[in-house]
Amino acid sequence: MVMQLTAKQSIHLPRTAELIRVEKLSDREKVFEFKFDDGKELGQKPGQFVEVSIFGVGEAPISVTSSPTHKGSFELAVRATGGVTNKLHTLDKGAKVGIRGPFGNGFPLDTLKGKDILFVAGGIGLFPLRSLINYVMDKRSDFGEVNTLFGCRSPQERLFIGQLAEWDKSKDMCFLETVDRVPDDEWKGNVGVITTLFPKISFDPKKTYAIVVGPPIMYRFVIAECLKKGLADDHIIMSLERRMKCGVGKCGHCQINGLYCCQEGPVFTYAQVKSLKEAV
């Protein structure tokens, strides 16, 4: 049992990073770009998360929204909703935070290589998914056909608008988006929940993997659409949200039945999730 350890190996000890850019995405969301003080890369896989520390406030698990193909810094897109995230929203360029991680399994890049991909993002589910979408766009020749569906509640809640426009124009992917409801007449796009976009696309279910990230309620309906389109259970991949406090499989908060979201997740296939009664 004897393990020679020192305090420096603490599971709680973060590295400090500097906030080098802040950009408002909507009323509640901002994207923050960080650079480690030690100059090292984060070295994340798309779909992994970090624990962000604001000293004196606490720590929160946040998915990394930038692709690892982007070097020198990394981005976290954050909704102001709890203690840490609200405080983060008050920070300006030059502020220092603590970062632990990356943690979690991330999206299965080896499985996805050479395959067709259907991205389905609901609301801020776009944040973790964006790391993979940008990764795929940067390594476009490694992948087949790409379809991307994005849905949010209203036009005001659209995120990364510049990037959505780029994807819309891009010949490298088919991009469709919708909003649940329209409070004004300016919106000329699709209206309806995200599942209403499914009849508008076609893909070969044998070659395609669906990557789905959104609020808990969205999964039920989107999975049903994916299955209707003929996707096999293990071709439907999702990222689940839990309260990962320690990130290293000890604190117990992120358990989904017997699994730890921070260890075996946050990315799961529907084949796995089906046997996990607490998953969705």
Binding site: T6, A7, S10, H12, G56
Partner: peptide, 18 residues
Amino acid sequence: TVLKYEVDKTPKVEAVAA
């Protein structure tokens, strides 16, 4: 206690375990 820190412009963070 697992960490002690000073919240200066550059925070000084120290792990506590003895």
